[in-house]
Design a protein around this nucleic acid. Structure first.
Lengths: 130, 130
DNA sequence: GAAAAAAGTACGCGTAACGAGAACTTTTCC
DNA sequence: GGAAAAGTTCTCGTTACGCGTACTTTTTTC
């Protein structure tokens, strides 16, 4: 059992170890220990992490593939964007032909590359940064 | 945080403390300690319990009301492929940034173009088709 | 390119709490 | 009513946790 998804969830939000540990009310070394697998969190700690990352304990533990399952009650599921970079357990199709994981990989890579180029152009323009 | 649901799940199945602890490979006093709240289980232990009772860790922890959520893939909501060429009323995102209609247009066009190329190659090879 | 700052990693210590066995109490069965 | 099954509680030895500190690496700033 590993908790690799912790790092993935934190990176998705561009948070530092220091920020997450502050939000969770624990030492940076404690949270870092959880991510690296050097330490195992208590039930209270993993529950707090699931709340912070707005996902489920089952997702963090690798028991289910979908980070958004039931963190928000299922229902009008298209209220929530479907995050493609985590390869969610939904099937997409074009012209009634299902898309493969490869198709999704290529699309995610394409969008990321385009965003990077857009960022480079913005820097050259000397735009205000956040 | 309490684990009262453990006892409820065990009673529903008419299992004894001894039987459950045997199934889980732990001492009876250990499992009884979890049910009474006198002891806190490890992540491995609570995962094993969720598997044994055929439910989720989130349910045992009291985070969700439904014991069957996602232990079995939830309803036909993601059984149905989402047809992208009709620009359905769902929102897709990559790295927490929503995709625009333009992004989707480009992706649909890309997949269609690639399929056409694949068709041309197949005709040239005179390969068996599926 | 160098220095500073930020971020991430690893170690050691004191302590909390875990897992289990044993002994006990309560409930069920005959 | 006694035996068996089930449930509860206590204690001990051991494990591993949480944290502070020090270190390394990466990023940012000038």
């Amino acid at each position: 059992m590993n908790l690799n998804r912790l790092m993935a969830l934190r990176k998705e939000k561009s948070w530092s170890l220091q920020y997450v540990s502050d939000q969770l009310g624990m030492a940076k070394s404690t949270y870092a220990g959880y991510e690296s697998g050097y330490r195992r969190p208590s039930l209270e700690a993993i529950t707090a992490m699931a709340d912070l990352f707005e996902t489920s304990v089952d997702y963090i533990l690798g028991r289910i593939p979908d980070p958004l399952t039931h963190s928000h009650q299922s229902g009008p599921t298209n209220e929530e964007p479907i995050e493609l970079s985590t390869f969610p357990d939904v099937t997409l199709s074009i012209d009634d032909i299902n898309l493969s994981q490869d198709d999704l990989c290529q699309f995610v890579a394409f969008i990321r590359a385009r965003r990077e180029m857009e960022q480079s152009c913005l820097k050259k323009d000397s735009a205000l940064s956040n």
